[in-house]
Design a protein around this nucleic acid. Structure first.
Length: 435
DNA sequence: TCTGGGGTCCTAGGACCC
DNA sequence: TCTGGGGTCCTAGGACCC
């Protein structure tokens, strides 16, 4: 190497984590709930998020709601309300952006921020800046946050986990050892069960054991992500805080589990159809089209049966995808097998405005449908997300989330699967007819 | 954490080309 | 046609995250 880059200036990186985020949003939205044991996840039948009051009673994540009702009748059970959580999430980002533009929206309840250099600008030491951010967040959002400050993302993340809830943990580079020595290697962000087991074979139990391996050893035994982690844990920042806001997606997927599980070819196809519609809706919102899709059926044994399809041209119109999926559905579906979920992934996403024309006019036809969907999307904005849907999704739409006998709706869906048309209940024609 | 839903990135290996 | 070297693109599959 001709020239070694200078060691980068130590950075001040923050990781912020909303405590029991979903449940906390519910409490912030409805102050009557404050101080009470609240959980979310009603629609899933298991605990998704819980307040610390619920935890104190003995409630745990993934506990079934039957058990909760039996053991802790005082617990308040709420359905998830992602729209609200998303609003709180954006408020969180905006508050942090008052301090620095370099804020990475890592997940609905977490973000990273790069404070490097702000000490001079704000004439405050870093810990005071962080305390100020924390105070703003907690006062304005009505919930607590756990925060870590260190020189790298991986160390900052370790800090925010260190003390919960409402913790503020600073991990200066001079003092990392005591944190790393007491952290099992598998608890480090980026080390999953596989890598953890692999490293343990070499006698690495704690994060500290890992950091004292030589650089040569690490680059021989691990690939790029492991090597980067090793550097981050040793205080060298190689993972940048990405302050750009999301511009696009690499893939879009929609999955839904239904209860009870089903063996019905048509009911399951209808679930898949609904997922395809939802995925296309999201693609249209981002002005994206997909040319490769993957769909799957998930069995009661958690096996995935699926297939990938290359579409004749990129699209975000559900009919295009349904046409393609239908051809393969019967070779994937096995009668007699019990299925619990379906899913769709749109891949190879590209800007929906770049179109190539084909000889047979399929693209033009699809564009016609795109105009239809522009109107459909507008109507859904006004009348609710699920005001209009495809006939093939009818069964799924009318059986959302609750168990039911396979009755009239299934019969009507059977008819649809055979290609018969059906009128929408709100009086708008089945989209197949419009097109 | 016996199982919900939505993502990202990395790597190995094959196809194909000069 | 028994055998070089090197590059690019694509795909499948794995691992990890919240």
């Amino acid at each position: 190497m001709a020239w070694n880059a200078p060691r980068s200036f130590p950075r001040a990186i923050l990781h912020i984590d909303g405590d029991s985020f979903f449940a906390s949003c519910e409490v912030a939205k409805n102050p009557q709930l404050r101080g009470k044991p609240v959980i979310t996840g009603q629609e899933r039948g298991i605990v998704s998020s819980m307040t610390y009051e619920a935890r104190a009673l003995g409630v745990r994540r993934a506990m079934s709601l039957h058990e909760i009702k039996r053991k802790f009748p005082e617990v308040i059970i709420l359905p998830s309300d992602y729209e609200t959580y998303s609003i709180f999430s954006h408020r969180m980002y905006e508050i942090v952006r008052r301090y620095t533009p370099v804020v990475e929206e890592y997940s609905i309840d977490e973000c990273f921020a790069d404070l490097t250099g702000l000490r001079r600008t704000l004439r405050m030491p870093y810990p005071r800046i962080v305390a100020s951010i924390k105070r703003d967040l907690e006062q304005e959002l009505g919930m607590t946050f756990s925060i870590g400050l260190s020189a790298t993302k991986v160390l900052a993340k370790l800090g925010s986990k260190w003390q919960k809830p409402a913790g503020l943990t600073l991990i200066p580079l001079s003092d990392t050892r005591k944190y790393l020595e007491t952290t099992p290697i598998g608890k480090i962000w980026g080390i999953g069960p596989n890598t953890s087991a692999y490293l343990q074979k070499f006698g690495i139990q704690t994060a500290y054991d890992f950091t004292i391996r030589s650089e040569a050893w690490v680059s021989e035994k691990l690939s790029k992500p492991g090597y980067e982690l090793w550097k981050e844990l040793n205080g060298e920042s190689v993972l940048a805080v990405d302050g750009e806001s999301r511009e696009t997606y690499q893939s879009i997927s929609k999955t839904k589990t239904f209860t009870p599980p089903s063996r019905s070819r048509t009911a399951i196809f209808s679930q898949l159809s609904k997922n395809i519609e939802n995925a296309c809706l999201k693609a249209r919102r981002w002005n994206l089209s997909s040319s490769h899709i993957f769909f799957f059926l998930k069995t009661q044994e958690f096996k995935y049966h699926g297939c990938e399809i290359k579409l004749p041209h990129p699209t975000n119109v559900p009919q295009d995808m349904l046409r393609a999926v239908k051809d393969h559905y019967l070779s994937v579906f096995r009668s007699g097998v019990e299925y619990r979920a379906t899913g769709i992934t749109l891949m190879h996403l590209q800007d929906a405005d770049t179109r190539q024309l084909d000889l047979f006019g399929a693209v033009r036809k699809s564009e016609g449908l795109q105009h239809v969907f522009t109107s459909v999307d507008a109507l859904c904005e006004r009348f609710g997300k699920h005001a209009i849907f495809l006939g093939s999704s009818f069964y799924a739409m009318t059986h959302a989330g609750h168990s039911g006998t396979r009755g009239e709706h299934a019969e009507r869906t059977d008819a649809l699967f055979r290609g018969e048309n059906m009128r929408q209940r709100i009086g708008i024609p089945y989209l197949g007819e419009v097109a």
